[in-house]
Design a protein around this nucleic acid. Sequence first.
DNA 1: CATAACATGTAATGAGTTACATGATTAA
DNA 2: TTAATCATGTAACTCATTACATGTTATG
Lengths: 177, 177
Amino acid sequence: MSLSHALLTALAEKSGSGLDLARRFDKSIGHFWQASHQQIYRELARLEETGLIHAKAQPGARGGKRVYQLLPAGQDELRNWVPQADQIAPTRDAMMVRLRAEATLGPTGLAPALHRRLAGHRTTLAEYRAIQARDFPKPPPSRQQALQGLVLEAGIRHEEGWIELLKDALKLLESDP
Amino acid sequence: MSLSHALLTALAEKSGSGLDLARRFDKSIGHFWQASHQQIYRELARLEETGLIHAKAQPGARGGKRVYQLLPAGQDELRNWVPQADQIAPTRDAMMVRLRAEATLGPTGLAPALHRRLAGHRTTLAEYRAIQARDFPKPPPSRQQALQGLVLEAGIRHEEGWIELLKDALKLLESDP
DNA sequence: CATAACATGTAATGAGTTACATGATTAA
DNA sequence: TTAATCATGTAACTCATTACATGTTATG
């Protein structure tokens, strides 16, 4: 399980409350590791129990806000975890199943779903490109920026790949309905 | 949940026993929808209860072999499901988290893990290309072949994308250790 | 003081993983 | 007849999702 390590990574970048982290997961980190706020709160509680992170209650802040920060033990744990190998996570996408079902069942009216999906990937791609233009000048000023830029670049290529695939699929379906 | 529909799709392509399906999931379908044999048996039992598939016990066959086939109700269900939209499944890959952790923590010895992973993607890519060369002549002889070939093509591009990313990451890490 | 937004959680359920259990058939 | 392989399953556990519950603070 790596939600814990995704959280440690996020806290290594910047301290924050559970909701802060949930929001950051929605934006940057969540593009490759998603988590609901319920998961995040549960995992933060666990990490604090284990002594890897620590929460300071903020007296001035809203709600019962608890701002977590990474402890040295947490950084050690993260440092240990990073170079470990995990098995390759296979893609798992229902659209592939749908395409394959369409292939054997014959026309099933899949095209509109492909169009919606295409629009979604185009939106995400535009977001990524905006982030890239705003936050990642090239050449990158630092090793850190270069690596973070690379991760973003991977996201961009992923979206581009999907867009190409969907366009090809639509061409096929619409030429021969 | 789409395991059930992945199974219906597999049975639409060809009838088979639980173990047959588990093996086909390991090869073709499993490249984009994985399932263990335990999941598959459980789900097949459920689908039979619902009346979407039917098992014939094979008297001549090994063990208590039960060969499942798609029933008309199952085909209807599948036909209904195909054109439905699902939200885009975001990527979820620990390597992205590792890269990002490496970015903020500084050198952590990630390179060997990247090399191993690169080798894995190269192997998978070679498999896909072999399947493509063997089973997918071009131009494709039928609409069905064209669509199935497209799904395979998506897998190929996905592997190629990872290979490029990993090579770039290694270049970065090794130039500036 | 009402309400919107902030902030943290619980409970129930479902999906997925790991480890183990059981029996049938074939080939040595 | 014993070992390997084929074949189907159970049990226990972890992880993820969905829906709901609760309390706080700033703003009009």
